[in-house]
Design a protein around this nucleic acid. Sequence first.
DNA 1: CCATTTACCTACTATGTCAATAGGTTTGTT
DNA 2: AACAAACCTATTGACATAGTAGGTAAATGG
Lengths: 138, 138
Amino acid sequence: MISTKGRYALRVMIDLTKNQNEDFVPLKDIASRQGISKKYLEILVRDMVSAELIVGARGKGGGYKLCRKPEEYTVGEILETMEGTLSPVVCLADKKFNCPRKSSCDTLNLWTEFDDLIHNFFYGKKLSEIAVKQTHEP
Amino acid sequence: MISTKGRYALRVMIDLTKNQNEDFVPLKDIASRQGISKKYLEILVRDMVSAELIVGARGKGGGYKLCRKPEEYTVGEILETMEGTLSPVVCLADKKFNCPRKSSCDTLNLWTEFDDLIHNFFYGKKLSEIAVKQTHEP
DNA sequence: CCATTTACCTACTATGTCAATAGGTTTGTT
DNA sequence: AACAAACCTATTGACATAGTAGGTAAATGG
């Protein structure tokens, strides 16, 4: 299951996409628009900066900003950064894990197929696709 | 991520499929073949019985048995029983949960699409498909 | 230059789930 | 009666999740 880390991070990225006009968007604004604790977002945003998904600027007029164009991010990249892995099972998540049952496992095929499905789904979605500005009813 | 509950339960179902010739398969045998603690399996198997995936018989000659043909089970049904839900996010997992951001959420579509993908994948797979006896290399 | 605004940093915590383990009771078979 | 099996209740250690609390550092505006 996707945790708040991944889900909130994605919403931050969408929020930043929608507010690209401003140079830097303060976390305070994002938090209030998204209805998420600013304190908690600080933790997530730190990881996002060190993963080079966004950049921060201090002081007055500071905040956060995307460091690429929205179409240059995939949802998969964002989620995988925050969640650590998108793999549905331990044996596929950890590359170093060499399962002793590997050659005889009846379920490995199933998990591998599922893993590919997840990967292709999320890496096939661009941030720009899901962060479209909403058209309001007349 | 699919926990051991779902993964082990699936392996129990596969084991039972492969040993359909015997009337009832003792948990002891399943545990040793699968290399899983019998004590832990007891807990999982209890849930499987109450969900009517399998039936148990006590006493000597007892054990567990499928209550339908392998082609009448879907992997989705087995996993969903054990995991509680297959939904990737809380807002879709809990039917009673009425998210206040539902109408304005930018990510709901994404999660719904992903949820359908997961559901279709696992409910499209039958137990009989993944529990085929392995053909050995000559 | 100083107050303000912002990011950035370290630490702590309550809660819950996971993955078992331990020990006992009941039921059916031989 | 002995045994083998399912069935039942309770407990536990480890870890992740989803935060909270309080402070420091840097940039800007007046």
